[in-house]
């Protein structure tokens, strides 16, 4: 059944009502449905809330078990991609996100979400061992215009660094043919403020995924496709895992042998990683309370 959005709550999903995935929409956000589907197929219940409701009532975030900042063109990506959306969220919502992270809530931010997260101070976050600052920190990395100055939609090779802390991309299994993921953006070139920042991110395992060495579509420094914070919970990436939940979404599925099209797709594995993490996390905290 094509889903309907009734009073900001998604209906016609059969996810697990115990696990709520908060999806934040806004004017120009347009990948919220696929993101909702990703969470739903992974066993959570998507729960779509408009930025204006969230700004009126930031405590909504306290009820979320997972958070998704979808892709799109929030506020037309005016000034720069994600700039206005991040600006609106800075004052009231940043502290709420930090609380959620302290609770161990996984967050995914594909494409426009990534561009928002880095300007909202959620990525790359504090260096391992130190806590989140109470106010929004100055950004240390940016996603700027592609070196081609053009929007580009294609599938690119997906690689996970062995030392990553990211709970979303850990233990992902795929074959060389299926380890691809779609990108669609005009401002995805990853640039750090300076080399020290880059070194810290690399050394602390906060690079969550990379483009194939010969498949860097936008000129990103270090072929960085996505990064995470020190806890590995916040995952920002330029590609769209939510567009690779079924094998028939793979660009060459009509020529791949059936045995390669078994099991969960790359995208679905990420969502399952996070949903399972949440469920273990809640069980763990229940046990704590009991003992």
């Amino acid at each position: 059944m094509e889903y309907r959005r009734v009073n900001a709550v998604l209906v016609d999903w059969d996810g697990d009502l115990m696990t709520k995935a908060l999806i934040i929409t806004a004017p120009g956000i347009n990948c919220d449905l696929e993101l909702a589907e990703g969470f739903a197929l992974a066993g959570a219940t998507p729960w779509s809330v408009h930025i204006n409701e969230l700004l009126e009532n930031p405590t909504i975030i306290d009820e979320a078990d997972l958070v998704g900042l979808p892709g799109g063109f929030s506020y037309g990506d005016s000034i720069a991609a994600g700039r206005i959306m991040a600006n609106l969220m800075r004052k009231t919502l940043y502290p709420k996100f930090v609380d959620a992270l302290r609770r161990g809530v996984p967050m995914i931010a594909p494409c426009n979400g990534f561009q928002i997260a880095v300007q909202l101070g959620l990525l790359p976050g504090p260096i391992p061992g130190s806590d989140w600052s109470d106010v929004v920190p100055q950004p240390t990395v940016a996603l700027v215009q592609n070196d081609t100055a053009r929007f580009i939609d294609k599938w690119v090779e997906f690689k996970v660094p062995s030392n990553t802390r990211c709970i979303w991309t850990k233990n992902i299994t795929s074959t060389p043919e299926t380890s691809y993921i779609p990108i669609a953006h005009g401002e995805g070139r990853f640039v750090p403020a300076n080399e020290t920042v880059m070194q810290e991110i690399e050394d602390s395992g906060r690079v969550a995924c990379r483009y194939g060495a010969n498949d860097n579509p936008n000129g990103s420094i270090g072929d960085v496709m996505g990064i995470c914070d020190a806890s590995g919970l916040v995952f920002g990436l330029m590609p769209h895992p939510e567009r690779f939940l079924r094998w028939t979404q793979h660009p060459t599925w009509t020529r791949l042998p059936k045995e390669q099209l078994q099991g969960d797709t790359l995208g679905l594995q990420m969502f399952k990683n996070a949903v399972n993490h949440t469920k273990q996390n809640t069980q763990a905290s229940c046990v704590e309370q009991l003992t």
């Binding site: 990948c31 053009r150 669609a184 567009r243 979404q249 660009p251 020529r255």
Partner: peptide
């Protein structure tokens, strides 16, 4: 390639195919 031809995640057969 300048068009986002995959947004909404409904793609089965795209404008361009093959390895």
């Amino acid at each position: 390639q300048q068009y986002d031809h995959e947004v909404q995640g409904r793609s089965v057969i795209r404008p361009f195919v093959g390895p």
